[in-house]
C-alpha cells in the first residue's frame, strides 16, 4: 500500500470525508457509552443537550469556548508559519499574571484605560515569552517544540511561587491565590444579567482580525509563504527571520489574551487551576479548524461543547466525563486522517 497524491480533490472528498470523521467519532462515543452501560445514542444526545440545549448550557459553552478561541488562534497563527508553538499554556499564564499584577487590589490607574492597558500588557508578556524560543530557533536552530513545551512548566512553577509568596492574598485563608481584581478591572458582561463577558466578543473580533491579517495583508502573505516554503520566500526577498519573530509576537499575544480574559472576565483572581489545559487544547482547536482563523471559532465551540456537555451528561447518565477527552482525541485523529485522505488516495499494489 502507498499514498498517491490527488491533484484536485472534488467536493465529495473535501466535505464528505470530514463529515465521515465526525460520524466515526460519534460511533466511537456510542460504543464507549454502551461499554459503560448506558444507552449509546442517548449519551451523545445528552452531551449535545448539555452543551447547547438550554440558555444556561449555551452560555456555559460560550464561556468555555472563549479561552479556546484565543489559544486556538495563537496555535493556528504560529503553525501556519511553521512555528511550532506548544507553549500557549505558558503564554496564557503570562497574560493572566499581567492582568492580576495591574488590576488586583487598588490599581494604579483607573477609569476607561485600565482594561485596555491590562490587555496590552498581557499581550506583551505573552509575546515576549514566545519571542525567546522563536529567536533561538532562527538564530541557533534550537527546536521550538522543546523550548515552548518546557516553558509551560517553568511558567506554571513561577506562578506557583508567586502565589505562595508576593502575590498571595493575605485574606485568602492560606489558599494559594491572588488578591481579587478591582471592580473596574473586570470585563463587563455583554448583556446585563447573562453570564457571558466581553472576553467572548473580544475573541470573535480577534478571529476576524487574524483572518484579515492572514488573507489580506503583506505581513500575513509573508507568514503564509514562510510556512509553506521558506526557501522560496527567502529567494523572493522576504524577511524570513523577521516574519517568524513577528509571528511569535502575535501568537504569544493571542494566547496571553486567553489568560487575561479568564482572569478579568470570569474568575476575578489568579489561581494555579486557572487553565485546565486551554493552551494544549488550543492545538486540537487549531488542527480541527485546519488552521483557519474563522474555523477556530467553530472548532472552539465544538471542543468546549464536548467538555461542557460531557459534564452534564455524566451527572445524568453516570458515564465518566473522561469520554470527553476520548471524543476529542478521536475527533482529532479521524479528522487528521480525513484531511490526509482528501489530498492522497491509497493505492494498492
Amino acid at each position: 500500500m502507498r499514498l498517491e497524491p490527488i491533484p484536485a480533490p472534488g467536493p465529495a472528498r473535501r466535505f464528505g470525508l470530514p463529515a465521515l470523521a465526525l460520524a466515526a467519532t460519534a460511533a466511537l462515543g456510542s460504543l464507549l457509552a454502551l461499554i459503560a452501560g448506558a444507552e449509546p445514542f442517548g449519551v451523545l444526545g445528552l452531551i449535545a443537550k448539555g452543551a447547547f440545549g438550554s440558555k444556561f448550557a449555551l452560555l456555559e459553552t460560550l464561556n468555555r469556548a472563549t479561552p479556546l478561541i484565543f489559544t486556538g488562534l495563537a496555535v493556528a497563527v504560529a503553525f501556519r508559519a511553521r512555528l511550532w508553538n506548544i507553549g500557549a499554556e505558558a503564554q496564557l499564564y503570562a497574560g493572566a499574571l499581567m492582568a492580576v499584577l495591574i488590576g488586583a487590589g487598588t490599581p494604579a490607574i483607573s477609569g476607561p484605560f485600565l482594561l485596555p492597558f491590562m490587555a496590552l500588557a498581557a499581550m506583551l508578556a505573552g509575546a515576549l515569552l514566545l519571542l525567546g524560543p522563536a529567536l533561538l530557533k532562527t538564530r541557533l536552530g534550537v527546536d521550538e517544540v522543546v523550548t515552548t513545551l518546557l516553558l509551560n512548566f517553568i511558567m506554571l512553577l513561577f506562578v506557583s511561587m508567586l502565589l505562595e509568596g508576593p502575590l498571595k492574598d493575605p485574606m485568602g485563608m492560606g489558599w494559594p491565590k491572588s488578591e481579587a481584581l478591582a471592580r473596574e478591572a473586570r470585563l463587563p458582561r455583554i448583556v446585563e444579567g447573562l453570564r457571558l463577558h466581553w472576553g467572548f466578543g473580544l475573541a470573535l473580533i480577534a478571529a476576524l482580525l487574524v483572518w484579515l491579517l492572514q488573507s489580506r495583508t503583506t505581513l500575513g502573505f509573508e507568514m503564509r509563504a514562510v510556512g509553506e516554503n521558506s526557501a522560496a520566500a527567502r529567494y523572493a526577498g522576504m524577511p524570513v527571520e523577521r516574519t517568524i519573530a513577528l509571528t511569535a509576537l502575535l501568537s504569544g499575544g493571542l494566547a496571553a489574551l486567553a489568560g487575561f480574559s479568564e482572569v478579568s472576565g470570569l474568575k476575578g483572581n489568579l489561581t494555579l487551576d486557572l487553565s485546565p489545559g486551554f493552551g494544549y487544547a488550543g492545538v486540537i482547536v487549531a488542527m480541527l479548524a485546519l488552521l483557519h482563523p474563522l474555523g477556530v471559532v467553530l472548532s472552539a465551540l465544538f471542543v468546549a461543547g464536548v467538555f461542557v456537555g460531557a459534564d452534564s451528561m455524566s451527572r445524568a447518565a453516570g458515564v465518566p466525563t473522561y469520554i470527553a477527552d476520548i471524543l476529542l482525541a478521536a475527533a482529532l485523529l479521524f479528522m487528521s486522517l480525513a484531511i490526509l485522505l482528501t489530498r492522497f488516495r491509497v493505492a494498492r499494489d
Partner: peptide, 21 residues
C-alpha cells in the same frame, strides 16, 4: 519547485511573490 514557487499558493499569489510590497 524549491525556490521558484510556493506550491500551495495560487498562480495569482505566486505572480506577485517578488513584488507584493
Amino acid at each position: 519547485k524549491r525556490e521558484g514557487v510556493v506550491a500551495d499558493f495560487t498562480l495569482a499569489e505566486n505572480a506577485m511573490l517578488e513584488e507584493y510590497r
